[in-house]
Amino acid sequence: MEVRNCDENEYSIEVEDVYKHYRIYKDKGSQLKEKLLFWSRNKYTENNVLKGISLKVKKGEAVGFVGHNGCGKSTLLKLLSRISYPDKGIITTRGRISGLIELGAGFHPDMTGRENIYTNASIYGLCKKEIDRRLDRIIEFSGLGEFIDAPVRTYSSGMYMRLGFSVAINVDADILLIDEILAVGDGEFQAKCLNALKEIKSRGTTIVIVSHSLNQIEEICERSYWIQNGEICMEGEPREVHKAYLEATVH
């Protein structure tokens, strides 16, 4: 991954001092009544999830995020993919982003696998020509064989995931965001996914992985971030970070 040109575009992702809170409404059901009668905002408490996160990811680099349930890993990924926006701070991304957060989005059970490839890929922002060009590659990678022309409702859940994953990974994004989805399919397919990720990375794609299976991160990433209490509590070589993280978890 020697994609080091020294201009400012060296970084694929720059996150500067980002804050994010969620509102937790006490009573969402009575919105109309409250708004009309009291002309007041709903009562809510604030949950500060991210409190000043800064990080930079170079082009072609792969990094992992680890941390306890609810520490804000998925929140951070959502900010990177622009599903939601930070309260404060700036996030800069360079290149097309593809998020592997939900596989098989928009699948219609009555349509065939092939038809669903078109729907699903279009959600990643590909146009018809771009999908045509990738179609064979997607079908080949999914390993579904002749099932590709059967309605998706006849698929097993593993087959469904395989198809979703094949589409997502063949989008050819510049930045790939992955949230806990590497555990799909059987052992063989998982190995295939890991290899595919390594290959994609060697082509210069930036990868961000959130996972509780630390081994996967260690296999692909050169850096890991441990997030705790809304801040980055440790950053560095995955094996070292994970060791510290596991030790802290046990004690």
């Binding site: 900010l79 926006y85 700036i90 996030i91 800069t92 991304t93 290149g95 097309r96 510049d174 082509r203």
Partner: peptide, 18 residues
């Protein structure tokens, strides 16, 4: 990397806050 897809040149740099 193949940059054959002509789209996205303008979209490629994204800054939240702007």
């Amino acid at each position: 990397m193949q940059k054959t897809d002509s789209r996205n040149e303008a979209l490629s740099v994204r800054k939240t806050g702007q």
